[in-house]
Simulated scan of single mutants.
Amino acid sequence: MSNVSSAPEGGVLCLGRTYCDLVFTGLSGLPVLGRELFADDIAIVPGGGAFITAAHLTSFGRPAMLVTRLGTDPLSGSLEKAIVESGVDLTFAERAQDAGPQVTIAIVQPQDRAFLSRRAGHGRPATLAAALRAPGIRHLHIAEYATLAELPSLIDLAKGSDLTVSLDPSWDDTLINDGNFLDTCRGIDVFLPNVEELMAIARTDDVAEGLQRLNDHFPHVVLKRGADGGTLAQGRERIERHAPRVPVIDTTGAGDAFNAGFLHLWLSGAEGAACLESAIAAGSRSVQAAGGASILAHGSKPATRRAGEPR
Rank of each mutant, 00 (worst) to 15 (best):
A208I: 05
A208T: 09
E209P: 01
G210Q: 02
G210H: 02
G210E: 01
L211D: 01
L211P: 02
R213G: 03
R213D: 00
N215W: 06
N215D: 12
N215T: 04
N215C: 11
F218T: 02
F218D: 01
F218I: 00
H220D: 10
L223N: 01
L223H: 00
R225G: 04
R225V: 07
A227W: 10
G229N: 08
G230T: 06
T231P: 02
T231C: 12
T231W: 09
A233G: 08
A233Y: 08
Q234G: 04
Q234L: 12
Q234V: 13
G235S: 10
R236K: 13
R238L: 13
R238S: 05
E240I: 05
A243F: 14
A243T: 11
P244A: 09
R245S: 14
V246R: 01
P247C: 00
P247Y: 00
P247L: 00
V248H: 02
V248G: 05
D250E: 08
T252H: 08
T252N: 15
G253F: 09
G255Y: 08
G255M: 09
G255H: 07
D256R: 06
A260H: 07
F262D: 02
F262A: 04
L263F: 13
L263W: 09
L265R: 13
L265E: 06
W266Y: 15
L267A: 10
L267M: 14
S268Y: 05
G269R: 12
G269S: 09
A270Q: 12
E271P: 04
A273Q: 14
C275M: 10
S278A: 12
I280N: 06
I280C: 09
I280V: 14
A281T: 11
S284W: 05
S284A: 14
S286Y: 09
V287L: 06
V287Y: 04
Q288D: 07
Q288W: 05
A289G: 03
A289R: 04
A290V: 07
A290E: 08
G291N: 03
G292A: 14
